[in-house]
Computed example of a mutant assay.
Amino acid sequence: MRLGTLLELGEWTTTPAAVELDGGTMLVTARHGSDAWQTTSYGFVHDDAHALLVPMEARQAAEVTFRLDYGEQFDQAGIMVRADSRTWIKCGVEVSDGAPQVGAVVTRGVSDWSVAPVPEWNGRLVTVRASRDGDAVTVRARADDEPWRLVRVAPLAPEAEVGVGPYCCAPSRAGLTVTFTDFRLDEPDVALH
């Protein structure tokens, strides 16, 4: 699906500060303070990340590609699979402790968070793939055309009605603009490994 078509068909969870189509790319500027988090450890609730969602079938995969050219604390971009404000998965690259980290937040009432450093991905195109099948979403990520890395297997009820699409947010600053280069829907992965 072209990014222009996604922009026409998708719905924003929270409208970003700015959106611009530039040829085949979509530039999204996040609002300062935007985030997605439910309670755990920090005690705060944020439900204002900028996710542009289209319906996701019970057996479907989605991929989001973006340029990793941001570097401020907690800047982040990737893919979101969302049922509602208390049931969602966001996966991508978030800057934490001075380095880009590939990771996931899975929220089922409360959020959890897992990360792994990927400083070698700086300046490259990163693709995050969420594959939904059965009672789970399997998330993989890679830079350029490198092999996929398994990021997370998260539970999701087969009957859940969810949307999927690119997301970004900037909890700590104004001026984050993420360059999204691709969004696609296709068949789910046939195996976990």
Rank of each mutant, 00 (worst) to 15 (best):
A62C: 07
Y70W: 13
W37Y: 07
A83T: 05
D47S: 14
L6P: 02
L7I: 09
V106D: 11
S96W: 01
V126P: 07
D112T: 14
E120W: 06
A143T: 01
W37H: 10
T107S: 09
V93G: 06
G163H: 01
T87K: 07
L3A: 03
V64T: 08
R152C: 01
G23L: 10
A36G: 08
E57D: 15
G71Y: 07
V54F: 04
R82Y: 01
R152Y: 06
R86M: 10
S131F: 07
R82N: 02
G43Y: 08
V95D: 05
I79Q: 01
P16A: 06
R173K: 14
W113T: 04
V95Q: 08
G23C: 08
A17W: 00
V153T: 15
R129H: 08
R152F: 04
D97Y: 09
V190E: 14
R173I: 00
P158Y: 01
V64G: 00
D75E: 12
P147H: 04
D182M: 09
H32R: 14
T138Q: 15
R129Q: 09
W121G: 03
T181H: 05
I79M: 02
R129T: 09
C168K: 02
V110R: 13
R82T: 03
V28I: 15
G24S: 15
A83Y: 01
L176V: 09
T65V: 05
S131R: 05
D35C: 06
A104I: 10
K90W: 03
A160D: 14
V151K: 04
T65Y: 00
V128H: 04
D22P: 00
G165Y: 05
R82Q: 05
H46F: 11
R184P: 02
D22V: 13
T14F: 00
A160L: 07
R67A: 14
A141Y: 00
V153R: 15
V95E: 07
L3M: 03
G134H: 07
A77P: 06
G71M: 02
R142C: 03
A154Q: 04
V95I: 15
E8D: 15
V64R: 02
A141R: 01
K90C: 06
D75M: 07
R140L: 09
W37K: 12
F180G: 02
G103P: 12
R31N: 15
E63C: 13
A99R: 14
L176S: 04
S96T: 10
